[in-house]
Design a protein around this nucleic acid. Sequence first.
DNA 1: CCAGAGACCTGAAGGC
DNA 2: TGCCTTCAGGTCTCTG
Length: 294
Amino acid sequence: MPELPEVEVVRRGIEPYLSGATLHNVEVHHERVARRFAGTADDLARQLEGQTVTTVERRGKYLWATLGEDTRSILFHLGMSGQILVDENHLPQRAHTRLHAQIGADTFLSFVDQRTFGYVTIDNLVPTVSTLDPTIVRFVPSLAAHIAPDLLEPAFDLEEVARTIRSRRVPIKTALLNQEIVSGIGNIYADEALWQARVHAARLASGLSYATIREILQAAQEVMQRALNVGGTSFDNLYVNAAGEPGYFARSLAAYGKAGTPCPRCQSLLERCVVGGRSHTYCPNCQKVPRRNR
DNA sequence: CCAGAGACCTGAAGGC
DNA sequence: TGCCTTCAGGTCTCTG
């Protein structure tokens, strides 16, 4: 579910509450939420107890709170249905609450996740170096060290990413969704960027020009920035910000999930197909289906 | 090394 | 009113 804009909205929402906060009365309610932790859910709760957060950071769809001496972090991944909620009213715990902690006199943090594809763990921070400039070093949790910088961070190297994409004999959409090439893009913003750049998802990455690949990446940056400005994309109550409120970008989507409705550019009816195992919505007029990929 | 399929979950929506 | 199938914003791991 949540892609870069949604995770960034959550990060901005929890940062004012979590920076400088100490965790107390930590409860972890489900073994699956702790599956990336070397121990049980109870062990995780015990190790989180009394930890003090320094900063709240994000790369792509991974979100973490740095701890004390800045060598460790609490890592969150929201998966398909994860939410992080801050509650200042002593509300009863919601269904699917996987982790609950007190972070202030009357303030509580909940990790809620219906489908349990998300997780929480404690993870060491390791250095990563930007291909753009070797002096740009960023410490990220070891479980996020394999992913590339995201489209909105200073370490993002447009030319290098375009070269990597062009070296892959996979559908362009598969390359965009590969977090090891560029992180933060998910199914919504991949479809939106491809629609904006007028490229069909099944076109082979290796068959596109650098100019086209740059155009797609810039479209992804632009659409994500617009989504961020309005709080992200919500279709239902599965994506909400830290206060439990939805984002408003769904009304601005051009393609994602809109098969059968007119293309906002040419009025042809949008169609749906499957590329790389994921649903793809496209305009058959603006985004020509490849006949033969080379 | 790389690409593709399957696995991991819960719940909503649509067909019969 | 069910019951069954399909689908959903994402990784991760195994196979060939």
